[in-house]
């Protein structure tokens, strides 16, 4: 769908993107992650042809990115805004027509969306009369009205209350099911595991990690497990096939410990060791969250640059 190859973008004084390459497969929800100022927005602007890279190439469906692709992309920028004095219905139609829709078609689709999101009564309202959340909802509709193949959302959930954020999330997933590829940037990791198939992590203008979310998380497994058992707290003598990491949680009946397997041992070894000693309620592998991986990678990357 989208293939970004060796993009370099230099601004006066600093390099926003340094040799960044990405592959976004068709039908995916792709997360572009990174701390503020990492270069996410610069990359998104290049894909939207708002700016051009100094070197490198972008391919859209196998073709070199050009003006004809503009109508196939829908873009919701991080800093959102609409014409304040313009009526919302008229404004949505204008934006859709700029993306190549006819007036009638835009009107028809807009009616559908307004009904779907409970916005029917807004048509004649001016943007300045709407609340911030309502404006965002309207802008989301403007982004997807021309049914783009690629929807680019820069920090889509910022500015939404939890209820509306949920509504928008469901709409994004539905659009994805209908075949649209979604590329969204965020620094909120909760939404990533829930939504994204693949991610790329950008820090200080470099891509430092990319791949499928599940694969990345699995590759970051480090033989750590939670063990919950009942009865008196255990004491260990050093002969066990694991090390204790972190503090043990002691509750009247249930005790929890976090363990890291010793070299060459498996979870079965742990069970065999523990079963004679106590009553096991649960043994669960700890798979690092994207949040943890993000922090770890960004910190390591920052350290190595200093």
């Amino acid at each position: 769908m989208l293939s970004i190859r060796n993009i370099v973008k230099q601004y006066a004084g600093h390099r926003a993107l340094d040799d960044v390459s990405l592959e976004v497969e068709s039908g995916q929800v792709f997360g572009l992650l990174g701390p503020n100022g990492a270069g996410k927005t610069s990359l998104i602007r290049i894909i939207n042809q708002i700016t051009a890279p100094d070197s490198g190439e972008v391919f859209f469906n196998g073709e070199q990115l050009n003006q004809s692709h503009i109508d196939r992309i829908g873009y919701l920028p991080e800093e959102r805004g609409l014409y304040k004095k313009m009526e919302i219905g008229e404004q949505m139609i204008y934006l859709a027509r700029l993306k190549g829709l006819s007036r009638d078609e835009a009107q028809k689709r807009l009616k559908f969306w307004f009904e779907k999101l409970g916005m029917e009564t807004w048509w004649k309202k001016k943007i300045e009369e709407l609340s911030k959340g309502m404006q965002q909802k309207a802008q989301f509709v403007a982004t997807v009205l021309h049914e783009p193949d690629l929807i680019i959302l820069d920090e889509p959930f910022s500015g939404f209350d939890p209820v509306n954020a949920e509504v928008i999330k469901d709409e994004i997933l539905e659009l994805n099911k209908k075949g649209a590829t979604i590329l969204f940037s965020t620094h909120r990791m909760e939404s990533v595991e829930e939504l994204c198939h693949s991610i790329a992590l950008i820090n200080k203008s470099h891509k430092i990690l990319d791949g499928k979310v599940k694969a990345i998380r699995n590759s970051y497994r480090n033989d750590t497990y939670f063990v919950e058992y009942s009865g008196t707290p255990l004491s260990f003598d050093g002969a066990e096939p694991f090390q204790i990491v972190g503090d043990a949680l002691v509750d009247d009946e249930r005790n929890t410990i976090k363990i890291k397997l010793a070299e060459g041992k498996t979870s079965n070894d742990v069970l065999q060791y523990l079963i004679p000693k106590t009553h096991i309620n649960m043994l669960q592998e700890v798979i690092p969250s994207m949040h943890e991986i993000f922090i770890e990678k960004v910190n390591a990357n920052s350290l190595s640059h200093e």
Partner: peptide, 16 residues
Amino acid sequence: IEEKTSRIIEVIVSSV
């Protein structure tokens, strides 16, 4: 200035 301060500019220049 209006387009810039209202921030609609980025939406517009992604279309034209």
